[in-house]
Design a protein around this nucleic acid. Sequence first.
DNA 1: GTGGTCTAGACCACA
DNA 2: GTGGTCTAGACCACA
Lengths: 120, 120, 120, 120
Amino acid sequence: MFINIDFRDKRPLYEQVSDKLEELILKGVIKPEEALPSVRALAVELSINPNTVQKAYAALEKKGLVYSVSGRGSFASDASAVLPKKREELFGELDAILFRAKDLGITKNDIIARIEGIYI
Amino acid sequence: MFINIDFRDKRPLYEQVSDKLEELILKGVIKPEEALPSVRALAVELSINPNTVQKAYAALEKKGLVYSVSGRGSFASDASAVLPKKREELFGELDAILFRAKDLGITKNDIIARIEGIYI
Amino acid sequence: MFINIDFRDKRPLYEQVSDKLEELILKGVIKPEEALPSVRALAVELSINPNTVQKAYAALEKKGLVYSVSGRGSFASDASAVLPKKREELFGELDAILFRAKDLGITKNDIIARIEGIYI
Amino acid sequence: MFINIDFRDKRPLYEQVSDKLEELILKGVIKPEEALPSVRALAVELSINPNTVQKAYAALEKKGLVYSVSGRGSFASDASAVLPKKREELFGELDAILFRAKDLGITKNDIIARIEGIYI
DNA sequence: GTGGTCTAGACCACA
DNA sequence: GTGGTCTAGACCACA
């Protein structure tokens, strides 16, 4: 697993874990139906408490990105079902940023230039 | 003062107060050198603890948006000096959003359309 | 056997198996005195552990839907003897739902409309 | 608080607590904006661990029935916003029961009689 | 005082 | 072995 815990990060540990796993699932690094590491195994690997991993997995399950079955393990769901919702959320955040940009006197061209820098 | 405390807001009270004052200063509603209400007066007006208002003022002072004179009160600084830094911060946030958008398969055109909707 | 194991189902595997067999027996798809597949055969067919199938058969036997004869196998009981008890259980569940419906302000007519939709 | 923990109940403790509070909020016994007992106070009252109460409150918050603010406490939300969703869920459960009833040979009249018994 | 996070360690049903 | 629940006890920022 490609997860790095950063103890200086202000986000709680369980959120760092769940955010990173979410990213891996959305990007397809972890494929649908693929097994995640067991709660205990990941806890050992990251040197954190199993309860903390458990909380991260529970959060992912509530988001529909993972399903867990007692006695069997935790598995990635099909992320494509969650993508449209994720996009809507992101557009909401983008709008908030754009309104603030406008208030700060940033022009449309300034922003488009920024986009060009990221979309090649 | 045009400040509304929202007790359901997850942000701490002092941050709600400081964010709102920051907005008023950046937008020029509170002019440079203009006196802010006294800590006690604002605390009474918002029905919150003076310590909380004090904390908000301290946060604004650290950001360079307000300066305090012992025995006289707190005054708005010249916001224009802080604007470039604010713009840089916002561009940083914008970049983060854009990278996430790219990862989610959102196209440049999707984003530009969103901008058109906000910049008239 | 017309049994599909759903690994995302939150119910334990043995319960999925026993629930499905119960349905087949109650609906008469498996007739009274008809032999169920052997524990081993069903385990192989469903690619699950024989212990799990064994547990499912034990649950059905306790409910009186199946009887086992050492060395010969497991057979469906006469479901009609169990039907009245099943109906009573279902009425109990129905009552619980109806009380909750009443509490939520759902009217008698709302519910009857729902029944019409299912009983043609 | 009118909550009884039943240690023989198979539902986990946190679910018993959250279900009961949900009922009190939906029925209006706990009014919108009313403060719930603090995590620690309820834990002492029910003689269970504060973490367990915390988990119950977190579940209620995710359902939109409660909002919690660090340093201030937990408060009931306006349940009316959640009622339509609750009703839809219940209709789903009702449908499942009705299909099973049909399969068991229970007639429409049997069911309507049961409704009459509960709706006066 | 309040909610929120985290650890250490235990126990359970299920596979 | 697996996930899930629970306790005891600690620490944190915030009010």
